[in-house]
Simulated scan of single mutants.
Amino acid sequence: MWSWLTRIAEACWRPVRRYARMSKDEDEDDVLVWSRDIGRHSAGEFSFAVVQANEIIEDHSQVETGPSATFVGVYDGHGGPDASRFISDHLFLHLMRLARENGTISEDVVKNAFSATEDGFLAHVRRTCQMKPLMAAIGSCCLVGVIWRGTLYIANLGDSRAVIGYLGRSNNIIAEQLTRDHNASMEEVRQELRSLHPDDSHIVVLKHGVWRIKGIIQVSRSIGDAYLKKPEFTIDPSFPRFRLSEPLCRPVLTAEPSIHTRVLRPQDKFLIFASDGLWEHLTNQEAVEIVYSYPRAGIARRLVRTALQEAARKREMRYADLKKVDKGIRRFFHDDITVVVVFIDHELLLESNASVPELSIRGFIDTAGPSDFSGLGGIYVNSSAVA
């Protein structure tokens, strides 16, 4: 019965093989996983992995390293890759520009970088929607982490998630979720939406057992999804999937991120940044225990592999068979998954490590080029942001 699953799309697999960066272990045949098993950042090491499920990958991601700071971005697109790719190309640059203009990194600087990225993408939609009307329905979750001078800034839109692993009093590893899931499956999100839209009885609708905003989308915050934010981007009724029950009077989605700031402590050992494709199959605690129990090199790929094994188990199939399923069809079994694990070595945390190059590493696209952390070494921490 699984014969249809065992078809190998050679034309699809061939380009992905170019991106594989894996150590020789029991999974060197995981050609649909791109990974950078280990790399250096200003306060330690990182591990990075991506697996594709959609016909065109909608996850975009990046790690930016420099002597005095580290930036991580995970962008889980929906409706297409345009928004997540746009964020990858622009958000970090906005952050660096604003940091230099303000002379600091702060919560406001991070928030304004999100706002500038949203404004830029909506302008892009405005320019292109005549030729490509469904650009107005393309959006992306956006999870960002910045480590700078011993302080961690986390900003999040949507349901990607950042989790920190820290040592408890009994020397056991404990998971702490640093982000809030902006997803209508959460009761607190539904309550928030109802309080913001008291006159709209259809602001959240249970459809086929899934809570959706306006019966269409699960995430309540995103970059893009212009047709759910501005009336000018209303999509033609000939596309019923995006049809609203009544004209849009005010935005039902927002690009206002949740911000979390944390002065890193000696007990804090590592961070996991991942799109929701990982968290559909692993709990926070399961993920941190895996990271804590295995070597650093390849740990992001190990998390992805564990999630895929669990996805196969849920469908009562073998992991070996799941690996053979074509892209596109794979989306019925699991989502695109991006994982970045960032280890924190506290002896390096407050040092200026000139031996760490300024590199920009893009997930799955497999590019590594110069990054732009110039000027950060001379600016100071905004004490009001970390109090």
Rank of each mutant, 00 (worst) to 15 (best):
S106A: 11
R14P: 07
K314C: 14
E286N: 05
T128I: 12
T104E: 15
R331W: 07
F333Q: 12
L206W: 09
K111Y: 04
L264A: 07
W13D: 15
V252W: 02
V16K: 09
G44R: 00
I56K: 13
P266C: 13
F48E: 06
F332A: 15
P15L: 00
L303W: 03
K207W: 12
H124Q: 10
E358M: 08
E187L: 15
T234E: 14
V31R: 04
A162W: 00
W13H: 13
P240I: 09
E58D: 07
V219L: 02
T70Q: 08
V288I: 09
E358V: 04
T70N: 11
V340T: 13
S201Q: 15
F86N: 04
G375F: 03
G145P: 01
H41S: 03
H182S: 04
H90N: 15
P240K: 05
R85K: 14
H78T: 06
G224I: 05
Q130V: 11
Q218P: 01
V210F: 05
G298E: 09
V110Q: 00
V16D: 12
E246P: 06
R362C: 12
E358L: 05
S245P: 10
M317V: 15
L143W: 00
F273N: 03
V340N: 09
D108F: 02
I57F: 03
D268P: 03
S222G: 05
W279Q: 10
L348G: 05
D27L: 14
V325D: 12
S68F: 12
L167Q: 07
I223V: 06
V74W: 01
I365D: 13
C142N: 00
P67R: 06
S35F: 02
G80V: 04
A300G: 06
T254L: 04
F270L: 07
Y227P: 10
Q62M: 14
G363R: 00
S384Q: 10
G73K: 04
G73Y: 04
G168C: 02
A99P: 00
T283P: 01
E256W: 02
V291E: 04
E351S: 11
F46I: 00
K314M: 15
G39Y: 00
Y153Q: 01
A137Y: 04
S88V: 11
Y294W: 10
G224K: 02
H260A: 06
A20D: 07
P67F: 02
R250S: 15
R85W: 11
G73R: 01
I213L: 01
V210W: 02
K230V: 09
F121Y: 08
Y153I: 01
L248Y: 04
E286T: 07
G158Q: 00
V72N: 06
L264N: 08
E45D: 12
W4M: 13
I337P: 02
V205W: 06
H208S: 15
D119Q: 11
L376F: 03
C141P: 01
S88N: 14
D181F: 08
P247L: 03
H260T: 08
H197K: 13
N102V: 13
S222Y: 01
H197N: 14
L95D: 06
H124M: 12
A307V: 11
M186E: 15
H124R: 11
P198M: 10
T151L: 07
M131F: 11
Y227F: 15
P198T: 09
A300L: 06
A155P: 01
S258F: 05
